[in-house]
Design a protein around this nucleic acid. Structure first.
Lengths: 104, 104, 104, 104
DNA sequence: ACTGAAGGCTGCCCGC
DNA sequence: GCGGGCAGCCTTCAGT
């Protein structure tokens, strides 16, 4: 049977209460969530005011969430593909990669 | 002068502390935010389990955030354009709109 | 066996060509895609210039992509839930819905 | 004066044609756009079949779209901030950065 | 079938 | 005040 998505008759009042509760809980939680989102935004604003670069901060936070092993793998794959494409010349990243290869 | 985004020499330690503080605060706040996001997801799951349709719930929450006047305007524009396109036939929304027009 | 994602030794040149081809093809296709995206944006700009409301146009396009039956279902669910929440009063949508209910 | 978004009386037919044209043009363009999106997806599938890592390919394409100078700046800032946070130890990226610093 | 990522769209914010 | 760029939300798709 297909999932009922309507509200069965005779149980209207009950279901209605349930729905109301669900919606109000979500709204409450979204408010809280938004509050933290606003706080975060504020910290970024402060960072910017102090002369820091927001995109870089975001990137660091992303990196800190990842396992070091994962990061390493990704960088290696990137270097490998970049090398295959002849894109490893002149950039710091490139040079570092070239050096690494030489050591192997 | 271009905005400094680097970290001035001789103030390394100070700036470093500041940066560290900023990043840790953001991480803390993001954790909190995620916690609420997870809660929200859970409520949607509960709603689904109870037979409610999540997309419709989302839509209702969106509508409740909007001013009634805004909603009305949007529905009217939609009806107007639909009418101009000859798309107002057979649907409940359409019929209701046609009736409204007649009364004017 | 784990998926190899590196490039096997001794086949470097071949794989390299293959990778290069893949990337260039994607880039070419993305250019084309972007070109159409830009065109679309331009038409919306023109629409706006002619006094039309872009969000409503988007909504109509979305609706035209959907099967009428799907649309009807969604509207019904919305009405049903709104009714359960006591939100069906005073809005055109609401009134139309109420009328529909009465006819059943 | 507020922007008219409705359709002026007495010009209904004309405006209607215009709206219809706009919508149909957008729909046509979106079809084309989707067609290229599908092609792109297919190339990624082929790449995967050949053993390449899609996320890395995406990353390379992103990098190739950016100006080299921009990339360099970003990497430098990242290294700088990472250094300030004491996160530059053990990773290839880190080591390369440390070496660079020493040379200055 | 569901969960997690990628892309597209929308609303916001900054800079012009 | 407007347009462009950026972040969040939502939807779709691949993976399990």
């Amino acid at each position: 049977m297909a999932k009922k998505k309507g509200i069965g008759h005779n149980s209207g009042a009950v279901e209605s209460k349930r729905l109301k509760s669900i919606i109000e809980r979500i709204e409450r939680l979204e408010e809280e969530k938004k509050s933290f989102a606003d706080d975060i935004k504020q910290v970024y604003a402060e960072a910017k005011g102090a002369g820091f670069d927001a995109p870089t901060i975001r990137r660091i936070i992303r990196l800190r969430k990842m396992e070091p092993e994962k990061i390493r793998e990704q960088e290696e794959l990137l270097d490998l593909y970049m090398g295959a494409l002849g894109m490893l010349t002149g950039t710091p990243l490139a040079n570092a990669a070239l050096e690494r290869e030489e050591q192997k």
